[in-house]
Structures are given as structure tokens and as C-alpha cells.
Nucleic acid binder design. Structure first.
Ligand SMILES: [Zn+2]
Length: 306
DNA sequence: AGGGGCACCTGTATGC
DNA sequence: TGCATACAGGTGCCCC
């Protein structure tokens, strides 16, 4: 599943492939990807003839900046705090937002005869490169942002701190954690507090911090909060360097179809019944809010008394 | 206000 | 073999 490290891997590959290229052709095969786009995809088609200025990311959203000016580049293209602070109101720039949902893939396409199934959208570039958006479960979506100017894009205004993009991302993200009774895992999954964490990385963060997923925020010590912050960085930085996690189902692969390698470092996710790599006890799998949590009942205790 | 529940979707795996 | 069911889960919306 594409979460922050997978989307970041796609972002950096796509930036290398597409920056400076002209959008020659936009082809739409499946209108449902535009269900949240006010123009139903027409605005994207009208970008033919414009140029890719940058490929950015906030949480699990990919952000393509497209401009009629071939030489325009946003000031902080490779820096941090891009979305909240850069003022591009003096440029003719449009942001295209892509969310991969559960099974969305950005793919570097080859021969047309070998196009994959569920290819909903293709973007042809002047270099000859064809970029595809394929998505079997169709939870992914694409939309052209309505508002550019100072401050965040309207459509992702609700997102909280991005722990990698924001200089103090994890500090910002955890400032309200111990004031809420919500289970810590629900707080990690809340994109309005910290964005980019999904079910898989939530479990990997929690087991490294030795915190039980159902611990209410109000029961967390300062030590727990510090451990959680450190785990967020540890997990995301290592997962990005290993190009994300690809499981058996291969719902995530990179733009060239290659798997990531962070799944080999998993301590909890998809390891139910196998030994905890810290203490040897069996990892358990437990229903949690329409998903599953994977954790070690010995390393991650719920209360002070058990 | 904020938290819980659910719809959306389809390929794969499992059970009878 | 075939049909039914479970499962994977991010997001947004409804409801309390
Ligand atoms: Zn353990």
C-alpha cells in the first residue's frame, strides 16, 4: 500500500523523469479518477502544451506543478515546508494533486501493447516518456487544484504536519497527542494531525516505540511520546532509503515496476504468528477500526498493570 | 466538536 | 469445479 515512503519514492523518480518536459498528450480511460475534480478531468486535458515544473509531495499526495513557462521552478523545490509557505501567486502555475489510494500506481510505460490492466490515465511527455496511472481498486484520484497562491492548496488544507517535509514535523504532529483520549494508533492514522502514516507504518512505528496501538493518548508518558517521535523518523527515513515496502500482493511497486525492500525490516505488519524479533513472543493480529493491528503483546503492553 | 461507522472497489485466497 | 464469502484499507461523509 502506498504510504509516505512509497509516495516519496515515486515522487523522486517522477521528478527525474518529468521535470522540464512538455505535456504532449493527456489520455483519460476511466472518468472515476476525476470524481473529486470539479471539471471532471477537462482542466487536466487542457494542460497539453504546458511544462512540468516540479513534482512534490505532502503526506500521501503527489503534487505536480505545471506551468506554461518551461523555465519556471518553485524556489524551494527540493527544500522543506513547500506547501505551507511558498508564495507562487506571481506565477502562472497549476497544481495537479494525485492520491494513490490503496492500489494506485504511477508507471513508466513502454510499448502500448504491454499497457497494464486498469490503466486509467496516461500522460505523454515531449521526451517520448509515457507516464501511466493504474489502479485496480479505484480508490485513487486525480484533481486539479482550484487555488494557487500563498499558503496551502485548498484541497489538502486539512492535512497536518508532514514529518519529512516539515522541519519540526514530528514535534508539531504530537503536540496534542497526550491531550486526547483517542487510541494512539487512531491518532497516528489521522491525516489532520500527522500525514503520511497508514495502517502498515502505524504498526511499524508503534512496535519500535514499544507502545500498544490501543493506548489512549492520555495514558502516554513523555518518554512514550519521545519514543514515538523518534520511531516516526527512524521508520520513514529507513523506509525511504529502501524505496518503500512491497508485499506479496505487489500493490506497491516503483515507476519501473520494481519492489521496495523495507518489508524485510518489518517487525509487526504481516507477521502475525511469527516471533517478535525483539523478544521472541508471537506477534498477534487484532481487529482495530475496520483494519487489523499487528503487535507484540509482550513488548507493547496496554496498561501499567498488565 | 470530534469520534465511530460505513461506502467505495476488485483481485486473490479460502471454505463448503 | 463452482459459488459464496472474507480480506486488503485510505478517504470522505453521515450521524450522534
Ligand atoms: Zn516482543
Amino acid at each position: 500500500m502506498p504510504e509516505l515512503p512509497e509516495v516519496e519514492t515515486v515522487r523522486s523518480d517522477l521528478a527525474r523523469l518529468a521535470c522540464g518536459d512538455e505535456v504532449v498528450e493527456v489520455k483519460v480511460n476511466e472518468n472515476r479518477v476525476f470524481r473529486d475534480d470539479p471539471s471532471g478531468g477537462r482542466d487536466l486535458v487542457q494542460m497539453e502544451g504546458q511544462f512540468v515544473s516540479a513534482v512534490m509531495r505532502w503526506g500521501k499526495y503527489l503534487i505536480l506543478l505545471v506551468s506554461p513557462d518551461q523555465n519556471y521552478r518553485p524556489v524551494q523545490q527540493f527544500g522543506r515546508s513547500i506547501i505551507p509557505s511558498v508564495d507562487w501567486s506571481d506565477h502562472a502555475v497549476t497544481a495537479v494533486l494525485l492520491h494513490l489510494g490503496m492500489s494506485g500506481q504511477i508507471l513508466l510505460l513502454g510499448d502500448r501493447a504491454e499497457d497494464p490492466r486498469h490503466l486509467h490515465l496516461t500522460i505523454g511527455l515531449s521526451s517520448g516518456t509515457r507516464i501511466g496511472f493504474a489502479d485496480t481498486r479505484t480508490f485513487g484520484r486525480v484533481l486539479v487544484s482550484s487555488g494557487m497562491g500563498a499558503g496551502p492548496l485548498n484541497e489538502i488544507r486539512h492535512l497536518g504536519a508532514d514529518p519529512i517535509q516539515d522541519p519540526c514535523g514530528a514535534d508539531l504532529a504530537f503536540d496534542r497527542t497526550s491531550g486526547s483520549v483517542s487510541p494512539i494508533k487512531a491518532q497516528l492514522l489521522d491525516q489532520g494531525r500527522i500525514c503520511g502514516v497508514g495502517n502498515m507504518y502505524a504498526d511499524e512505528i508503534l512496535i519500535r516505540a514499544k507502545v500498544h496501538p490501543r493506548t489512549p493518548g492520555t495514558n502516554l508518558s513523555n518518554r512514550d511520546i519521545s519514543a514515538l517521535k523518534r520511531s516516526v523518523y527512524r521508520v520513514f527515513e529507513e523506509a525511504i532509503s529502501l524505496r518503500g515496502s512491497s508485499l506479496k500482493d505487489m500493490t506497491y511497486k516503483d515507476v519501473s515496476g520494481q519492489p521496495g525492500m523495507f518489508q524485510e525490516r518489518h517487525l509487526a505488519y504481516a507477521r502475525a504468528g511469527r516471533p517478535c524479533l525483539i523478544c521472541g513472543d508471537s506477534i498477534v493480529k487484532e481487529r482495530f477500526q475496520n483494519r487489523y493491528s499487528h503487535f507484540c503483546p509482550n513488548c507493547q503492553k496496554l496498561g501499567p498493570c498488565d
